[in-house]
Write a protein that binds this DNA or RNA. Structure first.
Lengths: 337, 337
DNA sequence: GAGAGCACTGGGAGCGCTCCCATTGGGAGC
DNA sequence: GCTCCCAATGGGAGCGCTCCCAGTGCTCTC
């Protein structure tokens, strides 16, 4: 009769009262802190169970000055960039590592102006304990925002130009070099490159690796044929390549989507893969296996990328000073080369 | 000299002091609330700029009892389920809709026991303003947790068996029916079904749609050949089908991944698609276009699914009572049927 | 000219938790 | 028997914000 109100959540004070202890003791008991007698600890546990008490994370956050969350920010002017399964894998890895540290994952797609504004607020307002930043492009406004962040920031992949203090990256140059060397080792001499957006560091680095390998083999590198990491752009780039260099016998595509696109164009043009033209991709996503023929590609440890970013962030949050990390790649040989 | 301390974030009180107004006025000015004179409003704005003040979201959350975040929970015993590009699209849609309501997105992959435990805490603790739940399986513990949630919950796809109060789903039955009818209309009479996990509602509903269409056409539905929505499982299912029903001339696959797998098996078995066997998939993800031949499939509006879930949640949070939603599908005819 | 009404203002009580600190009451050590 | 130490305890001051409420000086009406 007295207690038929809209049933608010029980608070610590109610637990306190039911258990007959002070708030300090109840708090300590909840956090498994020392200096609580066995009897009181049990009394608190009983009260908690009876009331169905769950601590209010917001209040805790305010008192401890820790939000218990880390943000993953994915840049890009178009939200569809995020549809790339690449990010899903990063998330799987990051999520697992964050879970170990008992942090929640906030996901921010900084595509629209509004989205970027919200990210800026987040970075400046202690809305999370730390941030992971991915897919920055050249002159990305997020880079500047990151500098005035009031919390630790870890980069996934280096932004174009500068190397931030903390980042995790994949060995793009090495992977691209290995892919190209492989093509060369198979006797290909006219190897073209379908590269990703050159306003991304991954796009540049992979072209650089290709170029290095070509020069080292005393072959002429092709000028970059730019795509935007999507399947159609790969198909288009391949078509352009076929027009300008009809005699090419190998293609290094800067990711699997574009590699799959190239395969499609090649098929439609009646070129046999790998007999006439050998193709190597980059990423080793599901599409590489589904492609026809299955794509030889550079495997990059994407989930590990996410996991290591998260671990680095956790280290930073707990006051340590981790060192940047570059993850190795590995060539996966299938049938396209 | 006095102010060389580790530079905490400025607080509202400091703004207050600099602007020479009371905290109430400053708060009102910040929130664009009425009853603030132009002069004071400007004074506050100036002080905010000068101090680089950004409101602390946690404190605000505690005072307003609103966290400013919504969670998207993806169930599944294996985190890799999330690697399906399906979810990425849902997220794109949900994120956009949430952004409009100025809510942040928390992502919870409830794969491990630990993950589920954290979700349970989240649901019971007011750690978010609302939750979207996806990919529940039969007897999923999350269903029970959702019931004792202290915040609104909307389901993405109905859980097996029961229909929750609020959900957004895709017309799985209708889509599968249309796909099957299409196959029949093309003269196929021995149409098999590679269905998804039958402990998911989508898996069941799509098989039901197939079955309905077959019966309506006075054809014998095949017993369900179960896969798990992955490419390899589709390939395996197709192989089994070929052994048991070598004379089949059509296949309805409950998603594109499995459809692509079926295509691969068919190709390896020397069956021509669509000449010998016509194949229709479901989802219309990127893989459908990349497959060889490009897959005729049932398009489902995935981003819209995410968007509508988020909108429904926002409506719920703001005290409205929206009605469940079922999104239409659409057959996309390519070359596999 | 008195009262009503209204825009503006600031004081202060929370929101639900953590954590510093002072206090208490036994043992252990001599 | 008397310190000294330390586990156990509870009081209470925040954490940074929102929002209710009472108060102030106007203009407007009859």
């Amino acid at each position: 009769m007295a207690e038929d109100a809209p049933r608010r959540q029980p608070t610590l004070d109610e637990v306190t009262e039911l258990a007959g202890v002070s708030r300090s003791v109840a708090s300590r008991a909840l956090n498994n802190a020392p200096h609580v007698s066995r009897a009181k600890r049990e009394a608190v546990e009983r009260a908690v169970r009876q009331l169905g008490y769950v601590p209010n994370p917001t209040a805790r956050a305010l008192a401890t000055r820790q939000t218990g969350a880390a943000a993953l920010v994915v840049s890009g002017e178009d939200p569809s960039i995020f549809a790339d399964p690449f990010f899903a894998q990063v998330i799987v890895g990051a999520s697992a590592a964050l879970e170990e540290a008992d942090l929640h994952l906030m996901l921010c797609l900084a595509a629209s102006d509004r989205g970027r504004k919200r990210v800026e607020e987040l970075l400046r307002s202690k809305g999370a304990d730390g941030v992971m930043l991915m897919a920055l492009r050249e002159n990305d406004p997020l880079a500047r925002m990151a500098e005035e962040a009031v919390m630790p920031v870890v980069f996934g992949g280096r932004p174009v130009g500068s190397a931030p203090r903390w980042y995790v990256d994949v060995d793009n140059v090495g992977g691209a070099r290995e892919a190209t060397e492989f093509l060369v080792s198979r006797g290909r001499t006219r190897v073209a490159a379908i590269c990703g957006r050159l306003d991304t560091e991954a796009g540049r680095a992979r072209y650089r690796g290709y170029r290095d390998a070509m020069l080292a083999a005393r072959l002429d590198p092709f000028p970059p044929q730019e795509g935007d990491f999507t399947e159609p752009s790969g198909a288009a780039a391949m078509a352009a390549l076929l027009v300008n260099h009809p005699d090419l016998d190998g293609v290094f595509a800067a990711n699997d989507n574009m590699g799959a696109g190239a395969l499609r164009t090649l098929r439609e043009a009646g070129r046999l893969v790998p007999a006439d033209v050998a193709v190597v991709g980059f990423d080793d996503l599901a599409v590489a296996q589904i492609a026809d023929p299955p794509l030889t590609t550079v495997h990059q440890p994407i989930a590990a990328l996410g996991r290591e970013m998260a671990r680095m962030l956790v280290a930073l949050i707990s006051g340590q000073d981790p060192t940047p990390l570059i993850l190795p790649t590995r060539l996966v040989i299938r049938f396209s080369a």
